[in-house]
Amino acid sequence: MNNNHKIKGIIFDIDGTLILNGQPLSGAIETITLLRKAGILLRFITNTTVKTTEQLGLSLRTLGFDIQDNEIMTSVTACLQFIDKNYPDQAGFLAIPATLAPQFTKIKQTKDNPAFVVLGDLDEAFDYAILNQVFNYMRAGTQLITFHRNLYFFRENNTWLDSGAFTLALEKATSQKALVTGKPAPEMFDIAVASMGLNKNEVIVVGDDVLTDIQGAENAGLTGYLVGTGKFKPEQLNEYHISPEHHLHNIEDIWNILGIDG
């Protein structure tokens, strides 16, 4: 694909693309290292909310990845930027895990008619009381802000229900749409491209989730490549009209896309 010699940057999903169940996927560490040697700019985006960019960077480097903190963007950092821009003087209600609280210290909070609700990954802390509280805020006109729409995630070699499932339920019950700051919304992709100083036609996206990574790339006007690891299922190729040239059997196939000898 000769026209891909102009690719100067790649945005990678992390979980399911580089790592799975806390361990590097085959060829992932080596691929990142070789891409750096080839002069390709890299960014790493994730809907994970349980770790800060600094914690993510440390864990990835501990596994052997050559990845810096400032190259990582999360749905939480995108959320904070959105609130700062759109609700600078208003107070909201935070339904987020305690681990995220330090990142939200500058956000004004209230339980009385909040302008917005941030719904985070509460995991086992999700219960009827908190969901009903958010439901009634939304019915009164409060804007629901969520980090992502992920329906499930991988942990301890099993799949776990994610907060996106509760977001969908709240939207259905209130006939309102949540504002999503993570994938597949375009905000995080746009921030990643801008941080590289590149044009969108010089950047591609690589991920395992056809709904968040590939649809997110499309929403942001970027070209996505679906890798056959993590959440990937073969039937998705036909179901979502993924052409063979936009499907990577594994991450090492990226060299065929770039037209570089890996």
Rank of each mutant, 00 (worst) to 15 (best):
I107D: 05
G120V: 02
D121C: 13
Q103E: 15
D112C: 04
D121H: 09
K111S: 09
K106C: 02
P114G: 03
D127A: 12
I96F: 12
D89Y: 14
L119H: 03
E124P: 02
Q90A: 05
A125P: 05
F116C: 08
A115M: 06
A98T: 14
I107N: 04
T110F: 13
A95C: 12
Y87Q: 04
Q103A: 14
P102Q: 11
D123K: 12
G92T: 08
K106D: 10
P88K: 10
D123A: 07
P88H: 02
L94M: 12
D89T: 10
G92K: 12
D121V: 10
P97C: 11
Q103T: 07
V117M: 15
D123S: 07
P114F: 11
N113P: 01
I107C: 08
F104S: 05
E124T: 12
D121Q: 02
G92V: 14
T110A: 05
I107R: 07
A91C: 10
T105Q: 12
K111C: 02
L122E: 04
D121L: 09
F93P: 07
Q90R: 06
N113T: 10
D127Q: 07
A91F: 01
I96V: 15
P102E: 11
L119Y: 02
A115N: 08
P88S: 14
P114W: 02
L122C: 10
G92L: 04
K108W: 01
A98N: 12
P102S: 13
K108P: 01
L94Y: 10
A125Q: 14
V118Q: 08
D123V: 06
L119C: 02
A129R: 10
A101M: 15
Y128L: 01
Q103N: 13
Y87I: 07
F104M: 13
G120A: 04
F126K: 04
Y128K: 02
K111Q: 12
E124M: 04
F104N: 00
G120Q: 01
A129V: 14
Y87H: 08
A125N: 14
P97W: 09
K106I: 00
I96W: 03
D89V: 00
D112L: 11
L122R: 09
K106N: 13
L100V: 10
G120S: 03
V117Q: 05
P102C: 05
A95E: 07
A115Q: 02
N113L: 04
P102N: 15
F93S: 01
D127K: 06
T105L: 11
P114E: 11
F126H: 00
K111N: 13
F93Q: 06
Y87F: 15
D123Y: 03
L100M: 15
A91W: 00
F104G: 01
L122Y: 08
D121I: 02
D127I: 11
G92R: 06
A129I: 07
G120D: 05
Q109K: 15
T105I: 12
Y87S: 03
P102K: 12
V117T: 15
A98L: 11
A115K: 14
P102D: 11
D121K: 01
V117H: 13
N113V: 08
A101V: 13
